[in-house]
Amino acid sequence: MLLEIENLSVSVEGKELLKDVNLSLDKGETRMLFGENGSGKTSLLMAIMGLGNYRIESGRIIFKGKDITNLPPYERAKMGIGIMFQRPPTIRGLKVRQILDLIRHDGSNPEELAAQLNFTQFLDRDLNLGFSGGELKRAELLQLMAQDPDLVLLDEPESGVDLVNISLIGEAIRKLLQKDLHRKREKAGLIITHSGFILDYVEADKGCVLVNKTIWCTGNPHEILEGIRKNGYEGCLTCQR
């Protein structure tokens, strides 16, 4: 297993957000994470990355066989976890080109990657300053491509993105996750989606739903999405697990 989350409970400011979450992800696997607004999807990703004031009350996070529950975020990043933020902050005076140089792995070429994302003209802009929804997502993906992590955490990659951008973004995610490789695929992805639109561009092996602070069920992503569309998230609660 690449990632194993065992009985993870997380709170923020004394409020319990996640309870007994269990989730494991294989090398090469793509997983969709569904859940209604405020169900704790972002919190789970933040906890995996070690960000924010999320307190791990119990449980562990194992990555590549190592317990990372108490590691600072940058060590997790160095071990191969990368995250696309739902709402990335603006960093004034830091050019896109400069951050790419700071974080890129050897052998990656920022110019080339930017060209793939049709983002070349943004290289000399301040990071995220005045970026539109689609531009923010592309900036996030560009950084991830430069980092080339083994586990990619994507927080609603399709939200706020128009149709032209979404195929560009879908293509980039497919590359990040080595979707064109089959047997030799190494990269894994955990992708939060509210709408499921991203499934039209990126095939997923499984889907799971976050309900009542925990992972309620895991299964075929299309079927789960279908079920949610028909019966809502409440439907999940009555569903046989």
Binding site: L51, P72, Y74, G82, P88, I99
Partner: peptide, 9 residues
């Protein structure tokens, strides 16, 4: 934190 998530100390 954003930069730490990218691997900067």
């Amino acid at each position: 934190e954003y930069l730490m998530a990218r691997g900067l100390s």
